[in-house]
Nucleic acid binder design. Structure first.
Lengths: 98, 98
DNA sequence: ATAGACTAGTCTATAGTACAGACTAGTCAG
DNA sequence: CTGACTAGTCTGTACTATAGACTAGTCTAT
């Protein structure tokens, strides 16, 4: 019981950060989402969202595909397998402790 | 559904911080705990734990009673009513989003 | 008495961090 | 040519956790 609580001390901060948690939670339900959708759904500023996405990509939790809608840039994001695992583990830790 | 996720962006960081989340989670199950117990149960350094307890006290989430065990200082901590509410609300937000 | 362990805490220094907002670069419509 | 759209970089600010050294007092043992 108290062991469950101790695990909170080692949660992955990459995913624990609320802004990024919003992003991965959104992606976990959706398979793919573009930048616009994440921007509107999270309420984060574009600059901030961009930085968080880069960090999640660097961590290997999110895959980012840059393409075009017509001639406009289009950024498609999805959760990687690893990202899904990490989120699932995070859920377990949080649920167990709370 | 997505509204639940948006709420993650406004979680109370006082309680979201893992070190403090451990403390309040421990206190929520226990009614009262001394410094030693929290120190051992969380694995935080004494200095760090002391700072977090002060912040939780300042936020009104934890009440701290300084007394003595024999002639040694003894610090007793408990969750306030407000602290209990905030934790309960935090739980709801997290559960809804995950 | 002197050294060491115990209580809890303050303080300092380090290192990391999110975030807003300004800016870039390209495309398009009027 | 102006203004809106795409996504992103970059800068500056401000906050933050954390370890570890240190304080002050009490106790035990040598």
């Amino acid at each position: 019981m108290s062991a469950d609580i101790q695990k909170l001390g080692e949660v992955d901060r990459m995913i624990h950060e609320p802004a990024r948690l919003m992003v991965v939670a959104l992606l976990s339900a959706v398979k793919e989402a573009d930048f616009q959708y994440l921007h509107r759904s999270t309420g984060l500023s574009k600059g901030n969202l961009s930085v968080h996405l880069s960090k999640l990509e660097e961590a290997g939790y999110v895959a980012i595909k840059k393409t075009f809608r017509g001639k406009y840039p289009l950024t498609i994001c999805r959760l990687t397998e690893r990202g899904r695992e990490v989120l699932e583990n995070y859920r377990k830790v949080i649920r167990a402790a709370l």
